[in-house]
Amino acid sequence: MSSSRTRSATFVALAAAAAVTLTACGGGDSDTSSKSSKDNKDKTSDAATHTVRDAMGDVKVPDSPKRVVVLDTDALDSAVTLGVTPVGASTVVEEAPFSTYLPEDKLKGIKPIGVIGEPNLEAINALKPDLILGSKVRYEKHYKSLSAIAPTVFSETTGPTWRKNFDLHADALGQKNEAKKVVSDYEAHIKRLTDALGGPAEAKKTKVGFVRFIEGADTRLYLNDTFVGSILKDLQVGRPANQDTDGFSLDVSPEQIDKANADVVFYSTYGDPKKAKETQTTGGPLWKKLDAVKNKKTYKVDDNLWMLGIGYTGAGMILDEMEKSYGGAAE
């Protein structure tokens, strides 16, 4: 493998690992120049505006923002889904790609403005944004400085609230009408797959689980308060009793993988399969005793997409993968 491909793979792996963390990231705050802030505010005041209620209160934003900076991966998905190319976006690690699942042509021209949780305020200010989208959980400490640069809209958190966050982003972007079609298309996609599974009643009879092997950590069985968990809930499929609960994940060792028992298992791997204990676990006797394994209903999926695709575009691509594997097998 070439050095550039190796470097890209490393970025993707690091990004996928960081994407599942819903706690606020570190990073110091700093001041922006009063002149630049005043210039940005003056530009906002010259345009037609509307008020958005977000996690921080009421925010007056331009009706049609032209220069948008996004601080989280779900905000990037929202913007691209609605046909908006941001002028700036965060990366999970320095020099990492903004996304590996969103179309490359939709990301052209975007400038990096720091890593997630640690915004480069000077870089953001230099882009002269008229709107900044982020989350309170990661950026509350920077809110004052960001708001001095441009109107700043924060969701409360990321992950399982992705649909609510999308509605907030659409409102801030002045794209509420366009958002209705996106939601409608997703709901139609959900219905199509649920119907392929025999309808809600039949879908509920099948227990579906998601397993993630992680280099440097225990294996995770994903619960309901996750992006993946929310999609499974939308599909109205059944869930194993130990995973059909509030929370983020049930962490297990290879010796406890029997807790992943389900009729259907989707799984992904972050990092090296051996170091993540995927090879050891899936080659062991406990894995082979899982109902899904015995019935050949285990499906390995793209870790980067399923962990970073937090939005309607990402969710649609996940449904496509499910439709080709699980949905197709159910027909």
Rank of each mutant, 00 (worst) to 15 (best):
I231L: 09
L107M: 13
N125G: 09
I149C: 00
I110V: 15
T158D: 08
E118C: 09
M322K: 01
E118G: 06
F248C: 11
A170N: 14
P129S: 06
A19Y: 14
R5W: 03
V208E: 03
K324S: 05
E278T: 00
A89T: 09
D303M: 02
D46K: 15
K259S: 10
P103H: 07
R212H: 00
S99V: 03
M1R: 12
I310N: 06
P86Y: 08
W162R: 11
H142S: 11
V301P: 04
L235C: 05
G57V: 15
G109S: 10
S155Q: 08
A148P: 02
A188W: 14
V12F: 06
N125Q: 15
D171C: 08
A9N: 06
K296I: 05
R239K: 11
Y267I: 00
K111W: 04
P200G: 14
F213Q: 04
G314N: 01
N177G: 13
A19W: 15
T23V: 11
D31V: 00
V87G: 09
S64G: 09
D63G: 09
D234Q: 10
Y312G: 05
K324N: 07
L308V: 06
L146E: 01
G109W: 07
F166G: 08
A170R: 12
E187N: 15
D291H: 06
L250S: 08
K108R: 12
T51F: 03
K233Q: 07
A123Y: 03
V182A: 14
P200L: 12
T298G: 01
K60H: 10
L102D: 11
K60A: 02
D46N: 07
G209K: 04
L107Q: 04
T23G: 06
S64E: 13
E187R: 14
N120M: 04
I124Q: 03
L319C: 05
T51V: 12
K136P: 07
D320W: 02
K180D: 11
S4G: 09
T161F: 15
A47H: 15
Y270G: 02
S135N: 15
F154E: 05
I110P: 01
N165P: 08
K324I: 02
N120D: 09
L193W: 07
V237N: 00
S2C: 08
F227T: 01
G117V: 09
T100M: 07
I110Y: 02
K136T: 11
G57K: 09
I257T: 14
A24G: 14
A172H: 00
D130A: 14
K41L: 03
G114V: 13
R5L: 14
Y267G: 02
S64C: 11
F166M: 11
D185G: 10
K191N: 11
L76P: 03
R67G: 14
D39S: 12
V68W: 08
K176Y: 09
D251Y: 08
G134S: 07
G198Q: 11
K43E: 05
T161A: 13
L131E: 09
L71A: 00
V69Q: 10
N165A: 05
Y143Q: 06
W287Q: 01
A55W: 12
A16Q: 10
V115G: 05
P285M: 06
I257W: 03
T157I: 15
S268T: 04
V52S: 03
D63R: 04
G109K: 13
F248S: 10
T226P: 05
E156R: 13
A329V: 03
F213K: 01
S37R: 13
D54K: 09
